[in-house]
Design a protein around this nucleic acid. Structure first.
Lengths: 142, 142
DNA sequence: GTTGCTGCAAAGTGTTTGCACCCTG
DNA sequence: CAGGGTGCAAACACTTTGCAGCAAC
């Protein structure tokens, strides 16, 4: 899976006449291994452990690249910073965010998706993406 | 409806030993009359027409006040700025956002709400709020 | 050797805050 | 007339950008 993602990135890079660098590899590796929904700052921390010379701007630029190449998905849970998840990790899912401890539970409900599509059609709307976040308290924080 | 909201605000203000000011009235009025999903900057523009001396910081502070008093709801459509809607205008609803022209269609689907609740319970999660945004293209932008 | 990439610092953007003065209650 | 509210500018947090040197192709 790891190597598959490197392949996807390298394909994208070659197709767009871009270059593969040590930094991009390092960031991609850290991104694949770290847990989902990393913030830029968190990823920067992880990458810095192994490649201390990498700058924050490079993390930003590489995450933008990963997003364009389809490897990463940009998320925003309204806490003022972007978070990213690997689109290869799991299929599409939505999120329950515990407002107490920050835990994120992923879920997917086919019927919810179905009714979204249904109501969109009723409004002459063509969905390209959606986002559903439930906020509240998880088991441990009740 | 207008007067009802002023009442709500004045109640909140009195209860919290705060003060009613010309600025707060002006901002509340503009907020009630303008269309839903205003950004801070937009509201600032509208308010400035009638009260040119009002500062941007006051808009921010008053919108925070309106949110705390339950009159306004804070939204974030991922465009990098907060937007607000009046919670008295309509009942709860979700949004379809046209990524082409920015149009926002409001909708509500009881079954979607029901299945959200259902899957939350399955995960031992207690929902306090949720947000569902569909992104795509509206009728005019296909 | 081109041309894109990086690190750094500077600039941007949206939002919050400190402070002296003002006004409501 | 006390204590909160306001305007202004400075501070903030996160993100983007300009640029000179560097590295991949």
């Amino acid at each position: 899976m790891n190597s598959k993602q490197i392949e996807v990135l390298e394909n994208y890079i070659t197709e767009h006449k871009l270059k593969i660098t040590k930094q991009r590899r390092a960031i991609l590796n850290a991104f694949i291994e770290c847990e989902n929904h990393v913030s830029v700052e968190e990823l920067y921390g992880i990458v810095s452990e192994q490649e201390p010379k990498i700058g924050l701007a490079t993390i930003y630029r590489t995450l933008a690249l990963l997003t364009k190449s389809g490897l990463a998905l940009e998320m925003d849970f309204g806490d003022g910073q972007k978070r990213y998840e690997s689109s290869y990790m799991n299929a599409h899912h939505d999120h329950m965010v515990c407002t107490e401890c920050g835990k994120i539970i992923e879920f997917n409900h086919p019927l919810i998706e179905k009714y979204q599509e249904e109501i969109a059609i009723q409004n002459g709307f063509k969905i390209t993406s959606h986002k559903l976040d439930l906020f509240g308290h998880c088991n441990d924080c009740l």
